[in-house]
Structures are given as structure tokens and as C-alpha cells.
Design a protein around this nucleic acid. Structure first.
Length: 690
DNA sequence: ACTTTATGCGTTTTT
DNA sequence: CGCATAAAGT
């Protein structure tokens, strides 16, 4: 028997070894939340709870895997049986098993945002009278998603939007939404929201399934509980209703997904919802030096609606000193200073992988990326689009999907559009003429396709046909790699090289090779077909966080959004663009959602273990070539003077603009200063309240 | 009629 | 840079 009191502090231990009943663990940043959960799992299994009767819900697949890996070290292979994963993947798993009662096949497809946009775009184009004034498909999808995630009526949401922009009626939105739902049903597909909605429906409406699952799961553990939405909270409430062993772990200070439906009330009101709930607070921070924690504590001190928590340092200062605040002239100066911090960190013995640059929005990183590239500093960015959302990957996946499912309309359309002279409309017609199916392993279908192709595309056909023949031969053997390779060699490489620049095309080919290796690397026992089915079934649920593995042999600086950095830590954290309208984002301020931005700032501060470098440039260059002054972020202004070390960097001399910037007219644009000359440059901020 | 190519615009956060 | 819309080309 493991002595948990030796491995954990008293609060952690109390949480990990708690007896039966509902439990809320308020784990402030860096207080060993993951550690506690991992030990909880180990404890339960040691107590004889069968792994397959534990459900562990996390926010990312990466978090789930990390916990299982760590639990495995403690208790061995038993962890394999645990039901663990994101809400979306757990729901998908349940729905594949029991979704028949809702009218879904076990092999329903999961469609991503890109597919959603295509479908809704098409519906709008064909059903709305004046698409010009109609909201864009993204907006329509946003409304639909909000209705789903917050269980609201779509009309009400549409009405609210209507006050902002006219040009449509709620009824029209409703009609589009209905058509969208019908189309998904016809395709046998679910989007991300459907996974949650249907997962909940499954346990809510199907009494047999509900009581079976309620009986089955003895313990339900939920990580990052502050970011659950209404559906997710209800889902876990129902699952745990029978045995009442629900453990919610989270930190209300780190609720940063309300825009996606997360309800901070879920965690705040958890004790009321679950009578007899015990609450344990973890406040001892093992991650950061005292200087960082002092700043973090002031950030949240006056925030409304919270469980009061104070981070208590347990690490010594180690000479880290105070977090620093850099007032720099502009983008360029900021990049230079960031490079200097990186160099400095290395001279202190840190590796590149110990350093992260964390920003509010992806586009804040562009110049920094370029600066790193120019200096030859290895870095890794988590770009806005995921690995599996890039078009070249989607093209290959479409081909593979079509291999295993001849009725996959979306994949056929995508695949056939790769041919010269075939566009959206032509593709749709061909699909109809082929009888709404295309089996590339059948000679008749291939011949029929050849007939339908426009003259321009025909020369390409023989080569592709060869690929298809190879699929026919190799499909039930063991090599997926070969199928992909043939597709690329015979057909796709030419396509890529025509569409993209040399280097870009080469990079994309590399990606595809990687993809092939990943699929082929699946379960050794299985055939190519089975591996493919496995892979394709939940590829939509894999995010770049999951794929971009944290390979320690690759020593690189991390560039990431704050959102994607949640749950992670680095010895050195650099935060650029702490300026008004950027962080907090202008949109959030307009819409009165500064409190969430504040929590986001709290999250980024608490990622730092030793050093925290914050930047606020005083000038911002816009796309029009103009240069505008910006104020420091309110979050930065609020930090008491004595808690940070201020550094005023004056590396820029007047007149540099002509040499460094080839584009735009620098100071030219008349509106650029907004009549406020002199608030930048040598006088700097020194002496001003900051 | 449909596809391809050119041009102009504007950027939150993501399972 | 990526996406949407507009004109030109098959």
C-alpha cells in the first residue's frame, strides 16, 4: 500500500484519499492539481476500484494522456482500462456504442469547423434570398453553437444579433439551422457540439443506457471544472447521480472559455448542487518563485465572484528577483529585447525549451516568429490552425476516407475538386451522376468517373487510376503508408507543386509523410483498413496540442497563445503586447468581458516558474503603414510598483524607420499620431505613472 | 455556366 | 498572411 501522506502535502493527500461522496478541489495555479488527480486515481485503484469503472474527464487529450502516463508509473498497466479523455472524445466513444437509439450509426463521422462552414455556406447560398445582407456563415454557426451549448432557443439568440445588424429574420436563421441539422443527419455526421448535445441526450433520454452507465461508473473525476459548460456539467451530474462520487477539480481564477459556453457558476455553485460536498483548497504553490506569485495574487485580488484564494509560495527566490516590465518603443524594439532575454536566459543555463513566448492572439506573434527565424533560433509555434485542419492534410484524409467509405459525400467532393477544371458545382453534379457514391476500388465506378471528368482533367486520370488499383490490392494488408505514398507520388505531389511555392510544397509533403507514419504506427495487430478506421474515426478530435508532442530532444522556444498554454509551465515566460486593445483584447472590452481577460492574464503570469518578462510597446504599426501610440495594458498599470522591476528600453534612435522598414511610409500617415506628438520616443515613460 | 486568377481587406481565444 | 469578393478566361 502506498503511503500517500509521504508523497503529497496534507491538502493534496486529503483530496487524493478522500472517501465516498462529492468533492470539490479548488486548486490554484501550480499547486499540484495534476499530481493530486493522478494520486487520486492511483488511490482508487489500490482500493480495489476496477479501472474501467472510473471516468476521468479532461479538457485536452494531452492532459488525459499525461495523467494516465503518470498514474501508470504509480500503479502499472491497470490504468489502461480507465475511461479517460476530453468530454468530446468520451461522448464520441459512448455514442459509437449506444448512439443507435438516437439514430446514429456506430461509424458516424465527426466533422470539423471547415466542413461546418462549407455546409452552412452552401445552405445560405441556396436558400436565402439576399445573401448579401445575411450574416456570414461563421456568425450563423456561432449562433447555432451558442444555442446548443447554452441550451437556449436559437430565435432568441438570432433576435439579439438582429439588433446589431439587420438584413435577416430569426425565422431565416432557424430555417438554415434546420437544414444544417438535416444535412448532418443525411451525412450521418456530428459536429463538435453535437457530440456534447447527443452525449447528454443519451444519458438523459435513454433510461436503459442511463441507469446502466450510472451503475457502472463508480467514480467520476473532472479536471478543469471551471471551464465546463452547462451540457458538460449536466452530463457529469447525471453520470455520478447514482454513486455520488464526483470529484471536480479546478480553479475559478482560470476560467477562460466562457466565450465557448463555459459557466463559471458550475464551479462556484458546485457545493450547492451537491449536498454534502466537501471542499478542499490547494494554495501552496510549487511552481513559481515568490516574485511571480506576488504579482499573480494582485491580479485577482479584487475580482468579483470568486472563491478567495491566495497563492502561497513554497519555493525560495533563488536569485530570480522580481518579474520585469519592459517599456519598449515598438514592435521592432520588442523583438530585439525578447531576443536579448532569450540570450540572457541561455547564459543562465536555461535551455530553449525552458522558454515560452505567450501572447493573447496569434497575430501578435508574427514579428517575433520572424525575428527568431532571422536569428536562427529554433522555435515551435502553435499556429491558429491545427495540423489536421491544414488543407493538404485534409486532402489526403479525404482520399483515405473515400477509400473506406464510398458514400462519404464531403470527402468525395473535396477529392474530386483536386482535378483541374473541377470546382464546387461540377463536383456536386458528378456526385449525383455517380449515384451518390463512388467506390474507387470498383472498376465500374472508376470508368464512370472518367466519363464525367472534364477534358482538362482527363490526362491526370491514368496515374490516379493506378493509385486506385493499388488501393484495391493493398487495402486489407498491413501497409497504409503505401496507399498514401502512391496517392502522393502519382497525383498529389504535382498538385501541391502547382499550388504552392517550392519550399512550402516540400514542407507540406513532409507533413503528409509524418501523417502516414502516424497512421501506420497504430496497433500492430491490425490491418491497414482497421488502422485507418481507427485513425479517421477521431482524427477530428485531435488538436495540435496532442500532435505537437513535447519532444525534449527538440530544444526549442515555445510560441503559443495563452489559451493553449493553460496547464503548462516554463522556467522563463515572455509576454509581449501588454497594451490597450491587445491584452485585454479590444473586443472583449467593448463587450464588457474584461473579467475573463483578467483571468487570462492571471493564467499567463502563473505559467512562469522563475522569470517573467512582460512587454508593452508604446507604438503600434498598422497594416496601412501608419504608426499609432498605444497605452500600456490596464493589467500592467494595476501592478503595484514595488512588485516589478521596470526597464525602459531606449534602443531606438529617431530616423531608423527609413532603414528598417521597407514597407509603408513609417511616420507619414497624417492621422497616425492623432495629434499627440511627443508621447513616444526619448522622453519615454520614465517618471510617469505606469 | 463554372473555374481560375487578381485584388483588397482585416485579424480573439478552440474542443 | 488568409479569405472573400470581383473580373477574366475556358
Amino acid at each position: 500500500m502506498t503511503d500517500f501522506s509521504k508523497l503529497l502535502n496534507p491538502e493534496q493527500c486529503a483530496a487524493a484519499t478522500a472517501g465516498e461522496g462529492p468533492l470539490l478541489v479548488l486548486a490554484a495555479a501550480g499547486t499540484g492539481k495534476t499530481r493530486t488527480l493522478v494520486h487520486r486515481v492511483a488511490y482508487l485503484i489500490e482500493q480495489g476500484v476496477p479501472p474501467e469503472r472510473i471516468m476521468l474527464l479532461t479538457f485536452t487529450n494531452r492532459a488525459a494522456r499525461e495523467m494516465l502516463d503518470r498514474a501508470q508509473v504509480l500503479i502499472g498497466d491497470g490504468v489502461a482500462g480507465i475511461w479517460s479523455g476530453t468530454f468530446h472524445s468520451i461522448c464520441a466513444r459512448l455514442l459509437r456504442r449506444y448512439g443507435a437509439s438516437l439514430g446514429y450509426s456506430p461509424s458516424f463521422q465527426i466533422i470539423d469547423e471547415d466542413d461546418q462552414k462549407k455546409i452552412v455556406g452552401e445552405i445560405i447560398k441556396t436558400t436565402v434570398k439576399n445573401p448579401k445582407d445575411f450574416p456570414k456563415k461563421e456568425i450563423v454557426l456561432k449562433m447555432i453553437s451558442e444555442a446548443q451549448n447554452e441550451s437556449k432557443r436559437l430565435e432568441l439568440i438570432a433576435e439579439r444579433w438582429q439588433t446589431k445588424a439587420a438584413g435577416f429574420t430569426p425565422e431565416e436563421i432557424l430555417a438554415v439551422a434546420e437544414k444544417y441539422a438535416a444535412k448532418k443527419m443525411e451525412l450521418g455526421a456530428m459536429d463538435f457540439d453535437d457530440l456534447l448535445v447527443n452525449g447528454l441526450r443519451l444519458v438523459k433520454e435513454n433510461e436503459r443506457v442511463r441507469s446502466m452507465l450510472q451503475e457502472h461508473f463508480l467514480h467520476v473525476l473532472v479536471d478543469e471544472y471551471q471551464d465546463t459548460n452547462g451540457l458538460q456539467a449536466e452530463f457529469t451530474d447525471i453520470l455520478a447521480a447514482k454513486h455520488r462520487n464526483i470529484m471536480a477539480v479546478g480553479d475559478d481564477f482560470q476560467c477562460i472559455y466562457t466565450w465557448r459556453g463555459a459557466q463559471i457558476e458550475n464551479i462556484l455553485e458546485f457545493p450547492q448542487r451537491w449536498t454534502g460536498c466537501r471542499t478542499i483548497k490547494l494554495e501552496r504553490n510549487y511552481r513559481s518563485v515568490p516574485g511571480v506569485l506576488a504579482v499573480a495574487n494582485t491580479v485577482m485580488r479584487d475580482a468579483p465572484n470568486q472563491f478567495a484564494k491566495t497563492l502561497r509560495p513554497s519555493r525560495p527566490d533563488n536569485g530570480a528577483g522580481l518579474p520585469s516590465l519592459y517599456r519598449v518603443f515598438d514592435d521592432e524594439a520588442q523583438c530585439q529585447e525578447i531576443l536579448a532575454r532569450v540570450t540572457e536566459a541561455r547564459s543562465h543555463g536555461y535551455r530553449l525549451s525552458d522558454i515560452a513566448v505567450l501572447y493573447r492572439s496569434h497575430f501578435h506573434s508574427i514579428r517575433i516568429q520572424m525575428a527568431f527565424a532571422k536569428r536562427g533560433i529554433p522555435h515551435r509555434i502553435t499556429s491558429g490552425i491545427g495540423v489536421f485542419e491544414q488543407l493538404h492534410v485534409k486532402d489526403v484524409l479525404a482520399y483515405l476516407r473515400l477509400c473506406i467509405n464510398p458514400r462519404d459525400e464531403l470527402s468525395f467532393l473535396r477529392f474530386i475538386c483536386l482535378f483541374n477544371g473541377v470546382g464546387e458545382r461540377g463536383a456536386a453534379k458528378m456526385w449525383e451522376k455517380l449515384g451518390r457514391q463512388f467506390d474507387l476500388r470498383r472498376e465500374e465506378d472508376r470508368a464512370a468517373l472518367l466519363e464525367l471528368l472534364p477534358a482538362k482533367a482527363k490526362p491526370l486520370y491514368p496515374r490516379l487510376r493506378k493509385g486506385m488499383e493499388i488501393v484495391e490490392e493493398h487495402f486489407d494488408e498491413d501497409d497504409v503508408g503505401e496507399i498514401i505514398e502512391d496517392f502522393v507520388d502519382l497525383f498529389y505531389e504535382d498538385h501541391l507543386r502547382r499550388e504552392f511555392e517550392d519550399q512550402d510544397a516540400t514542407d507540406r509533403l513532409e507533413d503528409i509523410k509524418e501523417l502516414a507514419a502516424q497512421i501506420a504506427g497504430g496497433d500492430k495487430q491490425k490491418s491497414a483498413r482497421e488502422k485507418l478506421v481507427d485513425f479517421l474515426s477521431d482524427v477530428a478530435l485531435m488538436t495540435n496540442l496532442d500532435v505537437r508532442r513535447n519532444d525534449p530532444s527538440l530544444d526549442r522556444v515555445t510560441l503559443s497563445t495563452v489559451h493553449q498554454a493553460k496547464g503548462m509551465e516554463w522556467p522563463v515566460v515572455i509576454v509581449p503586447w501588454l497594451c490597450e486593445t491587445l491584452f485585454p483584447s479590444g473586443k472583449a472590452v467593448e463587450e464588457g468581458r474584461v473579467d475573463e481577460e483578467r483571468r487570462l492574464f492571471y493564467v499567463v503570469v502563473t505559467r512562469a516558474k522563475d522569470r517573467l518578462h512582460m512587454f508593452s510597446p508604446s507604438m503600434r504599426r498598422m497594416a496601412d503603414g501608419g504608426i499609432y501610440p498605444v497605452n500600456p495594458s490596464i493589467f500592467v498599470k494595476e501592478i503595484p510598483k514595488e512588485l516589478v522591476e521596470r526597464r525602459n528600453v531606449q534602443s531606438i534612435s529617431p530616423g531608423y524607420g527609413a532603414s528598417s522598414y521597407s514597407r509603408g511610409n513609417g511616420y507619414g500617415s497624417s492621422s497616425a499620431y492623432g495629434g499627440r506628438g511627443g508621447c513616444y520616443g526619448s522622453s519615454g515613460y520614465r517618471g510617469r505613472r505606469y
